[in-house]
Amino acid sequence: MSGAHVTPSRPVPGDALLHPLVFGAVLVLILNDHVLKARYASWWTGKLSDVAGLAMFPLVLQGLWEQVRARGARGFRPSSRVLLTCVLLTAACFGAVKVSQTAGDGWRWALGGLQWPARAAWALASGRGVPAVVPVAHVVDVTDLLALPALLVAWRVGRRRCADDSRAHGGPSTRLLPMAQAPSRG
């Protein structure tokens, strides 16, 4: 990058989602689930959601973890171990719900439960009764495992974030540091 001044910015909890590829995946997920699937329901709209979801979901988990861990701490550094755990957890859960009917049903009810508060609030605001928790639609389809390589996007973005932080601030980035020990920027 000749001529460009590059100043590594200090990472903040959850900012891996600001990477263009990752935030792009979030936008693709929203667009696909709420527009493309409705208009062009097809095998590729199903696969597109899986790819987009796998590209961003480990970093969502990591971001949530970082938000919780960084609360009250005066310094923050991203952790490769947390990233690896999130990637493996996502792979395991995705694999289970795509292979096992029981796990798939668990996923349907879990997501239905998470959606229920918003549905109930909307129903109440519309003057209707509180709806029951209903499972979401889900297809147990082993061919969806073809989307698993999309996890590499999350892995590479997350690893690079950790590596950049290590290079800029020295030492392995596996723990929270007090602000006093964190080097100042630029």
Partner: peptide, 24 residues
């Protein structure tokens, strides 16, 4: 404020994840 932008992105991603499937 980068911290708040990251939080907003995290919120959007969480909502996108939870709303990714409909009851059908």
């Amino acid at each position: 404020p980068r911290r708040w932008v990251a939080r907003a992105a995290l919120l959007v991603a969480c909502v996108a994840s939870v709303a990714s499937s409909n009851p059908g």
